[in-house]
Structures are given as structure tokens and as C-alpha cells.
Write a protein that binds this DNA or RNA. Structure first.
Lengths: 217, 217
DNA sequence: TCGAATTTCGAACGTACGTTCGATATACTA
DNA sequence: TAGTATATCGAACGTACGTTCGAAATTCGA
């Protein structure tokens, strides 16, 4: 049985946009906002800067967003939901725990490749949301964390261990998220190779330790 | 021969404080600023909020800091310098590469324990500095990254390998920094045990892979 | 073509920022 | 004790923020 369905954002926060072209425009607004937030942080980005970058008026933004915070919430909820949906599908595929872990690593890094700015905002700006939107977005993130912890537990203790996580497996999955999320701070495709290559290196290190990374060369 | 000396901040940016009690007050100012920045980020902290938290006037802050950015620079430079000094001493101690790596992990985590807010600011707010202060602080950080990469290279390829790092060792040290720096996002001593315990778990995972973390239990 | 709904915008509002200045208070040394 | 230097502060400045409102433009369907 697959995981329970993730509530679409329209169930939580109805968009009130009517025309299909407006939905597409929202996509473009969020994409540009993600780029600006990823560059200097949510608090440093201003609505004036965003409207200028989009070539639209300042007041026009408020047709799409109830507030600056609402913009951040829509961006994060949509991205977290898409990432979780992808990773739950990936984890459901058959295979050994090691194979599942590798697919999760590569899946995460490929998602990073395609949505670098959005994922960076998700990774670093959850705390910039107020209590209610924070809770909604954090629930999705927590579900992703449990998924990873479950697979890591199976790698450590064998396939039957998924139902009971240990402190080692919980900590190990946090170390893995650290490895994955730190990539925003250094990764440059021109210098560091493909994200698939990075995924294999991480897999080798996780399965065999530092000396195991020689296999990734 | 030990590493070249790290320039004290007074060589780079003379403080102009005369009285010893003013030096101590600067320490307190920076400590409180670190706490407020660590909570919501540099851009969200205001000089008004800081002066209120310190019980001093807004204008009084400008006796100690040329600007808000100068405050951030002093905080980061001092912390990076102290961390680097400690880690270079630790790495100089005799032992196998594995022992050196473990000491670096534990040393970093113990520094994190004692200077949580300052280190969080260093980890996440370097980009909030302008070009010249950024360069000064980043040089220190880069030197620390090279230290770690050198030790990791020796673990992977043996003790003679330190002079030549490979792409694997450079990547692996970035993964390690990811593990270390992500700790700001989740670590709670009440729930997760001591930082020494965390250091042993990281060591076991790095030396033996995920299954190796069972040794840390 | 017309009416209604949606989208867009210029202008303005109230709030708050980082920084400065001149005056005052405090501390230290001779 | 007095003079000098350092530390402190109230008030104000110019700038810029997020958000709103009423009017206008655009789009769509009958």
C-alpha cells in the first residue's frame, strides 16, 4: 500500500486565480522569487526587487500573493510536496535497502539539479514562515525525513528493521541530509562532475566508509 | 613546522577601544549579537533590537562598530580564527590519519558546543559580508577546509598522501562538513546525547560505513 | 458588441531601518 | 582636584520597506 496522498496546495490555500494563463504566470513568479531568495535570503529580497525583476508592478504581485510570507509558503509547500511525491515513488520500487538508499540519494540530487533555487529556499528558509504555514510545510518535510530514516534503518539492521528505527539510524539519516543539503554551499557542475557521480560517491562512502570512495573514481 | 600564524583581528581592523572594560563589553556585545543573528538571520536582526537586548542606546553601538556589517565581520573573523587555531593544533598532534580525523570531528563538535551561536553565524552568514571583509574571513575558512581535506586524503590513500589531494578526498571532506554543519538544524543535547557521542558515530560511519554505526551504540 | 470579471498599476500610507551629530556623563591620569 | 579622553545617549535624518486603494486596462463569454 502506498503512502497517503499529499494534500495539494489548493486544498490548504485556495489560489483564487481563474485563468489558465494566470496559473502559468504564478509558476514564473515563484521561479523568479526562488532565484532572488536563493541568492541573498528571504529577508534580503524585497517585493520591489522582485517586481522589477519580473517587469511588473509592485501592487500587481498582491494579486497572486496575500503577503510576502504567503509567497514563501506557496514556494516551499509546492516544492516540498513535489520532492516528497518523487521520493516516495522511488522508495516504493523493489530492491535491496542499499539500492533504495542509492536511488533516494540520486533522486534527491536530480531534484536538486532541476529545482536548485526552490530546494535551496526550502532547505534554509522554513524558519522564516509564521507558525501555521510553518507547521504545514514542516509536516511534509518530516514525512520525508521519516522515509529516509526508515530506509537507512533497513540498510543498517536488515530489511525487516524498517518498522523500528534506532537512534543510530535516525542520526545517520540526519548526517545524510547534512551531506545532501550542504551541496548548496559548494557544488559547481563545471568543477565537481554530475550529480549522479556525486550520488555514487555518497553511496560508496555510506556503504563502505571513506576508503570506499575510491570505488567512485 | 607548524602552520603560519593567523593574523589577529586588530592587525586587520584596529578596534580603537582603549579601556580593558571596553574589550570585555565588546565580547558581551558580540555574544548577544550572535544569539540574535543565530535565531533569525543577520538581515532580520536590527540594531534597535540588539541595543534593546543589551540595555544600551542605539547610538552607543556605534562606538564599538563602524557599521552593522562591521559587527558581522568582527564576529565571524574572531570565531573562524579561534576555530582554525584550535583545529590546526589538534591536527598537529601525533597519531594515525584515522585518529587525527576523529580528533578533528570531536574538536569541531566541542567548539560547536561552546560557541553554538557564533559558529552558526559563521556557517550561514559569510555571504552577508561585502567583498573585502568576505575575502578576509573566507581565507580563514578555506584554510580550515584544506586542513580537513588533507587529513581525509591521508585516511583514504595512506599517510604519505597528504600532499596530493584527489577529487574523492576533496569531495569527501565537503560531505563531512555537510554532516558537521547540518547539526545546527537538528541537534538537541537533551534528545541526541553528547557531542562526543555524535563525533564517535560520525567517525564510525566515515571509517566503516552505515553498518559501522552499530559500533557507536 | 457589450457587460462582467479578472488583472494591472500609480500613488500613497504608516512603519521602521541604519546611521550621524552634538551634548552629556563617566573614567582616568597627573 | 582638574583637565582630558573615552563612552554614552536623545533626537533626528534620509531612505526604503510591505501593503492598500481606487482607477484603468484587459480578457472572456454571451
Amino acid at each position: 500500500m502506498s503512502a497517503p496522498r499529499i494534500a495539494p496546495i489548493d486544498d490548504i490555500r485556495p489560489s483564487r486565480l481563474v485563468r489558465p494563463s494566470s496559473q502559468k504566470k504564478l509558476d514564473r513568479l515563484l521561479s523568479k522569487a526562488a532565484a532572488l531568495i536563493a541568492k541573498n535570503g528571504f529577508n534580503a529580497m524585497t517585493m520591489r526587487e522582485l517586481s522589477t525583476a519580473l517587469g511588473m508592478s509592485l501592487a500587481g504581485l498582491y494579486h497572486y500573493f496575500a503577503s510576502k510570507e504567503d509567497l514563501l509558503f506557496q514556494l516551499q509547500y509546492r516544492t516540498f510536496a513535489a520532492l516528497l511525491e518523487q521520493q516516495e515513488k522511488i522508495a516504493e520500487q523493489p530492491g535491496t535497502p542499499e539500492e533504495r538508499l542509492e536511488r533516494l540519494l540520486t533522486g534527491h540530487l536530480q531534484f536538486y539539479s532541476r529545482h536548485t533555487n526552490e530546494l535551496k529556499v526550502c532547505t534554509f528558509e522554513l524558519e522564516s514562515l509564521g507558525p501555521k504555514p510553518y507547521k504545514l510545510a514542516e509536516e511534509i518535510r518530516r514525512r520525508y525525513y521519516r522515509l529516509m530514516a526508515s530506509v537507512v534503518a533497513q540498510v543498517i539492521d536488515g530489511p525487516a528493521a524498517g518498522a523500528r528505527e534506532t537512534r543510530q539510524s535516525r542520526h545517520a539519516s540526519l548526517y545524510i541530509f547534512g551531506m545532501l543539503n550542504w551541496i548548496f554551499m559548494w557544488y559547481d557542475p563545471a568543477r565537481h562532475g554530475s550529480v549522479e557521480q556525486i550520488g555514487r560517491e555518497m553511496r560508496d562512502m555510506l556503504l563502505h566508509g571513506l576508503k570506499g570512495t575510491k570505488r567512485s573514481g
